[in-house]
């Protein structure tokens, strides 16, 4: 671990608020895509992408909180664990209604709950068996797994236009776009803290990266949906454009925050002198 870390991470937005923002925002975005079926269109698919961004921000904040206990090189690993848990829970949760007769609408909630249970088990194993002894491990793993599942469902819904597994299987899994959803989702959760890691890391800057990267993957998901037969081109284009607009806004904000937080931003120059470093 290369940072001066080892304690809880602070920041403007409290963990509880982040959980509400991510879980409610993520699920709301996913469920609002049901407007597609209600109005017999696919134009509302971009809302799945917005939901995925909310969940990614929550996931990135959870990674930030758990990794500030000294997981330097473990940051990417924890992101991959998130989506590993997320993909199992997502596929299970979305398929269960199809095979058991439960209404399809319950799919995302089942995925979310299953992800939380898997997260809790992994968290308990990390602390009790591997003896990592990180105080917030169990809670964080539940959060990361839940956020991972919501990011996956959100992005898949943005591509397929529905969270029904009957729509997701041909549009996302058989086309191979699941690879983009999996690794893109993982990177939106793990990259922000990895990119901003250091003793002077700030929550607003880190979470801004999560929004901009989530938006970038959302734009790609929109482009991918152009190859899906059940989606019309306008819906895919709208998802891409909305993603790009959010990306521009948050990338500019990130650069502003980087200038604010840096010791010195200069066009070019020599290294600081010995006197300056003292």
């Amino acid at each position: 671990m290369s940072t001066a870390a080892g304690g809880p991470a602070g920041g403007g937005i409290a963990p509880t608020q982040m959980i509400i923002l991510g879980a409610v925002g993520g699920l709301a975005g996913i469920y609002l895509t049901m407007l597609n079926q209600a109005m017999d269109t696919t134009i509302f698919s971009f809302l799945g992408g917005i939901g995925a961004i909310f969940a990614a921000v929550w996931g990135a904040d959870a990674v930030r909180r758990v990794c500030s206990y000294g997981l330097g090189t473990g940051v990417p690993s924890i992101g991959m664990v998130a989506l590993g848990m997320g993909i199992v829970a997502t596929m299970f949760g979305l398929t269960l209604p199809e095979v058991s007769g439960i209404p399809t609408i319950a799919g995302p909630i089942i995925s979310f709950i299953v992800a939380a249970i898997i997260g809790l088990l992994i968290g308990l194993m990390s602390n009790k068996i591997l003896m990592m002894n990180i105080p917030i491990m169990e809670k964080s793993m539940v959060e990361i797994a839940g956020a991972g599942a919501l990011v996956m469902i959100g992005l898949s819904t943005a591509i397929a236009g529905s969270f029904d597994i009957v729509a997701i299987m041909p549009a996302v899994v058989e086309t191979g776009f699941i690879a983009l959803v999996f690794i893109g989702g993982a990177m939106t959760i793990l990259h922000p803290f990895n990119a901003c890691l250091g003793p002077d890391e700030k929550q607003d800057r880190t979470l801004g990266v999560a929004v901009s990267k989530g938006a970038l993957i959302m734009a790609l998901a929109g482009f991918a949906s152009l190859a899906v037969e059940s989606m019309d081109a306008m819906s895919g284009a709208l998802t891409t454009i909305v993603g790009l607009v959010i990306w521009v806004v948050y990338f500019k904000r990130f650069m502003k925050h980087s200038h604010r937080d840096s010791y010195l931003v200069t066009g070019t120059g020599l290294l600081p002198t010995e006197e300056e470093l003292e």
């Binding site: 940072t3 990177m187 990259h191 922000p192 990895n194 990119a195 901003c196 890691l197 250091g198 003793p199 002077d200 890391e201 700030k202 800057r205 880190t206 990266v209 901009s212 990267k213 970038l216 790609l220 990338f251 990130f254 650069m255 925050h257 980087s258 937080d261 840096s262 010791y263 010195l264 931003v265 200069t266 066009g267 070019t268 120059g269 600081p272 300056e276 470093l277």
Partner: peptide, 28 residues
């Protein structure tokens, strides 16, 4: 292009988080 964008956030983010060590961010 996506690789380039991720590179910028990683470099600028890490440099800004080292403020106390006086590591400047050279834009060139």
């Amino acid at each position: 292009i996506i690789l380039g964008l991720f590179s910028v956030t990683a470099h600028m983010g890490r440099t800004a988080s080292q403020k106390r060590f006086k590591q400047p961010a050279y834009m060139d």
